[in-house]
């Protein structure tokens, strides 16, 4: 004989199941779950106007090119107590730096921290060349980062999110999905769900990292991905993290995972 299930028990069972269901669906996205499918990835160029496309395509007058020239010069310049240039150890970028930009940010074996390409270049300069520090977003660092990134031009992005990088990837993913700032917006709301739609006169892009460092017309100079991400925080009226913040690197890693397969595209021009 079945015991009668009281209304209370029924309620408990119902809400217990509902709670379990919420847990399942509210769980963080599995690493394999992509909100933009790999074959739907698009560079920022797909969302810009004709002037920017012309500027970027101009292989003489692209405003990022003087910085490329500078990067090429710095590569050969002897620096610091080591009396070595980058070239002394690394030879030509076309060989030694090929593919490097496709896999950064990456874990630095010595410190266990997540390094973006700028961090790696700065460290190499200080530790190996024993030269003066290049501050973040300085002309020299930007030029060098651009020059090193250009060795990976046209190559597909493939950053690792395994091992020590996994926690950084998950942290970055969480930030991307979380509402922030006075405008209470999450990156995903515009860049996953509404790309292609116009915000005033601009088309929202997918927010891809493949074209950085980019010459941003708004700032009239080359800019790093970190600077661009900090400006995203300004855009949603959130408190902007300090330069060098872990969050920026975590987000960069998540963006690179999200952009897997998209080609590196520098020197680029963006609004």
């Amino acid at each position: 004989m079945l015991l009668p299930i009281t209304a209370l028990k029924r309620c408990c069972v119902f809400w217990g199941l509902a709670w379990l269901g919420m847990l399942v669906f509210a769980a963080p996205l599995h690493a394999q779950q992509r909100l933009i499918a790999l074959d739907k990835l698009q560079s920022g160029l797909a969302f810009t106007g004709p002037e920017i496309l012309d500027l970027q395509a101009d292989d003489f007058a692209n405003p990022a090119l003087p910085a490329m020239d500078k990067g090429a010069k710095l590569w050969k310049q002897v620096a610091g107590k080591s009396d070595k240039s980058c070239q002394s150890c690394h030879g030509e970028t076309s060989a030694s730096m090929k593919g490097v930009a496709t896999r950064y940010p990456a874990i630095d074996k010595a410190s266990g921290q997540l390094f973006n390409l700028e961090d790696r270049i700065r460290q190499c300069r200080q530790k190996n060349q024993k030269a003066s520090e290049w501050p973040l977003e300085s002309d020299e660092l930007l030029a060098m980062t651009l020059f090193v990134t250009s060795a990976s031009n046209g190559m597909p992005i493939k950053a690792s999110v395994e091992g020590k990088a996994q926690s950084h990837f998950e942290a970055g993913q969480k930030i991307f999905m979380t509402r922030q700032g006075q405008m209470n917006l999450a990156c995903t709301q515009c860049h996953d769900q509404r790309y292609g739609i116009k915000l005033f006169t601009d088309k929202l892009s997918q927010g891809q990292p493949n074209a950085y460092p980019a010459y941003r017309i708004e700032w009239q100079r080359l800019a790093s991905l970190e600077r661009r991400l900090r400006f995203c925080y300004t855009g949603v009226k959130a408190e902007v993290p300090a330069w060098g913040h872990k969050d920026m690197r975590d987000i960069s890693l998540y963006l690179m995972w999200r952009a897997q397969g998209l080609s590196i595209e520098v020197p680029s021009v963006r609004k």
């Binding site: 002037e51 012309d54 609004k271």
Partner: peptide
């Protein structure tokens, strides 16, 4: 000049 300039900092 373009009829609609992307950004006022650089107008060809």
């Amino acid at each position: 000049l373009p009829m609609l300039a992307d950004n006022g900092h650089l107008v060809p």
